[in-house]
Design a protein around this nucleic acid. Sequence first.
RNA 1: GCCCCUAUGGUCUAGCGGUUAGGACGCAGCCCUUUCAAGGCUAAAACCCGGGUUCGAGUCCCGGUAGGGGCACCA
Length: 473
Amino acid sequence: MFRTRFAPSPTGYMHIGNLRTALYAYLIAKKAHGTFILRIEDTDQKRNVPEAVQAIYNGLALAGIAYDEGPDKDGGHGPYVQSQRKPIYSQYAKQLIEQGDAYYCFCQKEDKPEPGDERIEGLKDPCRDLSSEEVQARFDQGLQPVVRQRIPLEGESSFFDHVYGDITIDHKQLDDQVLLKSDGFPTYNFANVVDDHLMEITHVIRGQEYLSSTPKYNLLYQAFGWETPEYIHLPHIIKEDGKKLSKRAGDPTFEDLVHMGYMPEAIVNYVVLLGWNPGDDRELFSLQELIEVFDMDRINKSSAAFSMDKLRWINGEHIRALSPEAFHETALPWYPGSLHRFDLKELSRLIQIRTDCLGDIPEMLGFLAKLPEYEASLFENPKSKSSLESSKIVLEAVIPLLKKQETFSNAALFETLKAYATESGFKVGTTMWPIRTALSGLPASAGGATELAALLGKEETLIRLEKGLAKLS
RNA sequence: GCCCCUAUGGUCUAGCGGUUAGGACGCAGCCCUUUCAAGGCUAAAACCCGGGUUCGAGUCCCGGUAGGGGCACCA
């Protein structure tokens, strides 16, 4: 039985890297019909953001990732919030001390050498070999110790990682890390081992930054006589310029992207592809499909750059795949109020195929509510063989025609205008271009001449056509 | 400083000793077309460098280089 967990610290938002980690952990569990668990790692009392747990719930819900066990969903392995598990950690720390696998350390932070400090070579923690009397004496002085893991001085540790393969690290590289802080809270380094074991996690999925400390965790598992889990360390997601993604630098979080108009399903689809591929050419997946096709042994080792361009394309593909009804519902919240007089359903029909990002909708449709200022030169377009002259002739001829037009439907309008084109000798494109241009005031619009005319209605169509003609006179 | 990891077009990637190095995004062009899209077609664009091993190396080994990560009472 697979049991995986997503164990974020509550920082207040879900960044892209976190989303992918959650996703992979979820997919690995679900692929195996296993259990996916949410655990909150809030052991750093200095860093806790009060409302942040809610942000995690929201983020996961938005992504469609449902957990089987979590703080608000007991599965018999709780509590699922580390700050509520404090007694558990001290109990296990005590066991380690009794076994000699950990020790009390009374040093102050300043006593420790910095990385790069030459003294660090072969330097042992002075508290490592304190006798029980010496320890007691320090306790009697009222000193608050930390508990440190006693790493063997000799030897090396190896483990297998599903992404990176076999990793070996010399014990000399491992420091006697703090297990319990002086405030009694565990460090991540300790809590993750105890909790993963107690919660019966079978597969640990986390960022690559933990790769080199994994041997320390394995030593802990061994000291307790516990079975080590399988490891899946994930490469980082970076930016196209090679820098790392950071909220501070203005890089969007998952929630930001949703607010920008990217659909959660599309973001999920894109993010899962950052460091994984199905082994064939498929790129478009629903969450459900991902569960079926995901394979942890196909995760890449190298970091991947987040591309807005590709996200945009995938988002467009997801939008186009929607039924017209579903798209309409999705698009509705993005319509500006100024469009209320229009047939919104028809608008949705027109823009669906052209929409890559929902956030583009207001801009795409703005011209309907208010004709933009434009230059007469817009009527010149070599592709449709339109010139200032031809446009003027067409508009002059077409205005009276449309005045007489009774049914302002797309089909009827097209029939009328096409008939004019045939009769006048102008190409259909040459006829339509000036009309479309005058109706939109834009070089490109969501909809052709007759579609726009039908949408705008007879009155507004004629007003705009006259305005266009005025620019040409 | 020490240790770990990574390296295929601009980007995401396939490859797992013998391929004209495949696909996708983006970019350019063409077709289609009532503008723009969408769709279709075409093009340009890559194995970090140097040594080995081998009949043969993007693929295996070693060494560089470059990038990332770790060495916290942060996770």
